[in-house]
Design a protein around this nucleic acid. Structure first.
Lengths: 337, 337
DNA sequence: TCGGTACATGTTTACGTAAACATATGTCAA
DNA sequence: TTGACATATGTTTACGTAAACATGTACCGA
């Protein structure tokens, strides 16, 4: 078995076409003047010997790659599937390719991941959230890459942030629940509270309760990833306590759906016995027997706009001033609150 | 604004540490002999000047990268979110990074995508399905990269396939529905029928109906991506026809859930008025008011095993013989059939 | 004492490409 | 007729790294 794979280079194509390597380069990249005759000859020579460009060499020489680094906290939530889809769609339009990694909501892992991704010399990087360590900030500054931050706008963007106000989402949820007459709340979260966006929502939520004189009985935060099962289990625990809330605020729809499942199976009435609210507005909520009150977020659009910004042609620096693009959210009033 | 970003190289680190560039390379890669004293000096020098390796140069020189190309048909279905998560988890363990692209179920786009991904000189490539054009096959063979194919095992793998028998899944669904007494079927698909795995399920399904003398009244295939909304709309159309089926086989759970929604809202009894079956066994089905009969697939595990195979150490060629790993599936009998 | 070997570091070179610069020829306005 | 400029191609070089080869010291057994 022949193990050494020698792939054809521009030199091979050049030999075949009877031109110089540089001419092949020009044909491949459509740069500079090339006669039609030579162009055709080179192209068919390349085709014939199965030439595939070497992006490593290209990137090294030109000090430029069509790569965009993408840092996501997890793939375990369809939220980031939508975001990644938006990013991918936008990048594809610009001929860029995403290279991604997940941090599992750890700022420390983010440091290592960012450094690793930057070693590919991407032309841009998309980060999740606005909170990053100094290490990450310095590494990005030193790399001189474009930056976009997604999901959140509460804070100071490095360059451009595309997201929504997580705090405002928490406030809006609290106001809605308070308006419905609920006074005794429990918060349910996951990921050991490492999800900083969820933390901001909780903060806005708490602040609003405090101002209204309502009480947050407890904050139940699982050390597991969020899932319907976990939400169901936690809800069951909470409702088994002697001191019961009249409303539960979940950090996302998966957990909240678990809550709905528990209530349905136990014959607990929503919102009379217990009110529930989630966050995200995932499509599958449409199919549940009872509509969850939640916050609809522009997940795909956040990804798409961040991808569009980060991969725009390099001469277009019309928008390089730091700023936040707030895509907003919409409170959906369901039947659970 | 200083636009030229000159990033430190191994030479810079070498100068700072008073050693040669090659010594820096040895320290960074932990190869060869290095005294503890020099190692520490180099590491702190690198730290101090913020050195980040250049993987383009490294890959070019060593003719080897830790990249794995991943070709998926879409990100618009949470199925591939699970698959990608499995792949990512496995690759992360091996220090590899996925570079992915989507084909939108087009073999032609696959050709272009594979060529583009191969230009990054990945050490392996994960493809979806077993059907590929000769162009793609040749390109992969010429590149000499490892290959894994996922989702399907009905056919001849290039090297290793990790999946399930799509045909058998179609057969199993048909048998179950026939056993429940249904005789007049309609099939509902999406993506203009470009999803070849869905096509194989349909083929197994059809064949089984034929053998049983049952009839497939029609195959309704949307030209849109699959979604609950589309499934609902199509179901509504089908049930408005004069010739009605007594059972509908959907190409996936999203479409089937749309069917459930339509029936629930119209007061159509499942499975008495109409029986429904889906495919995938997505988690949100657990929360629906009526349990969908479907096929549970090992999505994460397919990704993980393919990732594990493709990124295993290069000297481990213990399993380089072409073969298929059938992870199987499980028919879940819900309340819709 | 000699030679082999583990240890430790340096020098030269090549990976495949594109930027920078060089060299023509042809065309067209002054 | 000149020279400015568009067109068309070639030559040299550098991008940052690691493989290959070279050099030198220390130690250990024969």
């Amino acid at each position: 078995m022949n193990n050494k794979v020698t792939r054809p280079t521009m030199d091979d194509v050049a030999d075949k076409a009877g031109v110089s390597q540089m001419t092949v380069s020009r044909v491949m990249n459509g740069k500079g003047y090339i006669s039609k005759e030579v162009r055709d000859r080179v192209k068919s020579a390349a085709e014939e010997i199965g030439y595939v460009q070497n992006r490593l060499a290209r990137g090294l020489r030109s000090e430029k790659t069509p790569l965009i680094a993408v840092v996501l906290p997890t793939l375990g939530n369809s939220v980031f599937n939508d975001v990644l889809r938006g990013i991918t769609d936008a990048l594809t339009d610009q001929g860029c390719r995403p290279v991604f990694g997940v941090t599992e909501y750890s700022l420390q892992k983010e440091d290592a991941l960012v450094r690793d991704l930057l070693s590919w010399r991407p032309s841009g990087i998309i980060l999740t959230g606005l909170e990053h360590s100094d290490i990450t900030r310095k590494a990005i500054a030193a790399a001189g890459v474009r930056v976009a931050e997604i999901m959140d706008v509460d804070g100071t963007p490095i360059s451009v942030a595309v997201g929504l106000s997580q705090t405002a989402a928490g406030v809006a949820t609290a106001k809605h629940m308070l308006a419905k007459g609920h006074r005794r709340f429990v918060y349910v979260g996951s990921h050991s509270g490492q999800d900083l966006r969820a933390g901001k929502r909780l903060e806005g939520f708490r602040q609003t309760l405090r101002e209204a004189g309502a009480s947050l009985l407890s904050q139940d935060i699982s050390d597991k990833p969020s899932s319907m099962m976990e939400g169901r289990r936690m809800t069951s625990d909470i409702l088994a306590r002697s001191v019961k809330p009249d409303a539960i605020y979940y950090s996302n729809d998966d957990l909240a759906t678990g809550g709905i499942m528990h209530c349905l199976s136990e014959g607990i009435q929503m919102p009379d016995d217990i009110a529930l609210a989630g966050f995200n507005g995932l499509p599958f909520l449409d199919a549940l027997p009872i509509r969850l009150t939640t916050i609809e977020t522009p997940r795909y659009e956040m990804g798409r706009q961040a991808g569009k910004f980060i991969s725009r042609p390099s001469d277009d620096d019309s928008e390089n001033n730091a700023r936040a693009i707030d895509l907003g959210f919409k409170l959906f009033e369901g039947q659970t609150c």
